[in-house]
């Protein structure tokens, strides 16, 4: 029996703010609690835009439809309110924030969830952080480094997974987290995602990727193919394998703009 969806995307249309170029042209998607969905697609298909519109990136404007997380329309919310509601996006290009340590940043993020006047207990926070780093097999000194500043590509992605572990979202959106990683770094990231799912089986994951290879390490419940701003095919893990064999050409021809 299908669980009631955590995320329901209906008729979502979105364009680049200011330029007005439409990128998403009516996206339909539903993700149940604890499910892992992968969205694959060629460059320019709009898969990354979908991730950014869900998280509330100011560079995109939703022109129609809705994105509901546990019934609440995310499109009405600011990015920080979406995070509070349970959305987490792991960035394809995590932004460098020099002078701010990962630990301090995460503490501020957790503090922001509390009511005015409530103070985050520092010992609880330290325990949580240490626990998460242990779960991901990370060196405790990592949290003292500046947010993404001076980190390698692989370390940046690990830092994203660590943030995800600490913030415990209802929906984790991984925006091409696998891009630019060598196979060892990819395995580390995939192991992190799997460890978090084990810890928190209710967490749903939307995994945006260009390549099949991450799906060898993170087993999806469903795979969708996105072409030209729409989801054109959905199915089980076999869809990814077919794509791997055929490439995107076939889809491109049948779903040209």
């Amino acid at each position: 029996m299908k669980k009631s969806p955590i995320l329901a995307v209906r008729g979502l249309r979105a364009s680049v703010a200011e330029a007005g170029v439409e990128i998403l042209k009516g996206v339909e998607l539903e993700i149940g609690a604890g499910e892992i969905h992968a969205i694959m697609g060629p460059n320019g298909s709009g898969k990354s835009t979908l991730a950014k519109v869900i998280a509330g990136h100011p560079g995109y404007e939703a022109d129609g439809g809705h994105v509901r997380l546990r019934g609440e329309n995310l499109l009405d919310l600011e990015p920080d309110e979406r995070a509070q509601a349970g959305v987490f996006m792991a960035f394809q290009y995590p932004v460098e924030i020099p002078g701010v340590s990962i630990a301090n940043f995460l503490r501020s993020a957790l503090q922001a969830r509390l009511e005015d006047g409530e103070e985050l207990d520092l010992f609880d926070f330290q325990d949580l952080l240490t626990g998460c780093m242990g779960l991901l097999g990370m060196d405790p000194s990592f949290a003292q480094r500046a947010v993404n500043d001076g980190l390698s590509g692989g370390e940046k992605k690990q830092s994203e997974i660590l943030q995800m572990a600490v913030l415990k979202p209802a929906l984790a959106v991984l925006d091409e987290t696998d891009s630019g990683l060598d196979i060892d770094a990819l395995k580390v990231v995939a192991a992190g995602v799997n460890a978090l799912r084990e810890e928190n089986p209710e967490m749903s994951v939307l995994l945006i990727t260009h390549y099949q290879r991450i799906l060898d390490h993170v087993q999806p419940d469903a795979v969708h193919v996105m072409v030209n701003g729409r989801i054109v095919e959905s199915g089980g893990p076999e869809v990814a394998l077919e794509l791997e064999a055929q490439g995107y050409e076939e889809y491109r021809r049948t779903h040209a703009a």
Partner: peptide
Amino acid sequence: FYLMSRGLERGQAERLVVRG
């Protein structure tokens, strides 16, 4: 946007960037 996507409200995100 990056900081806000982690739950920090705008003013707080701005302060963090300036502090850094």
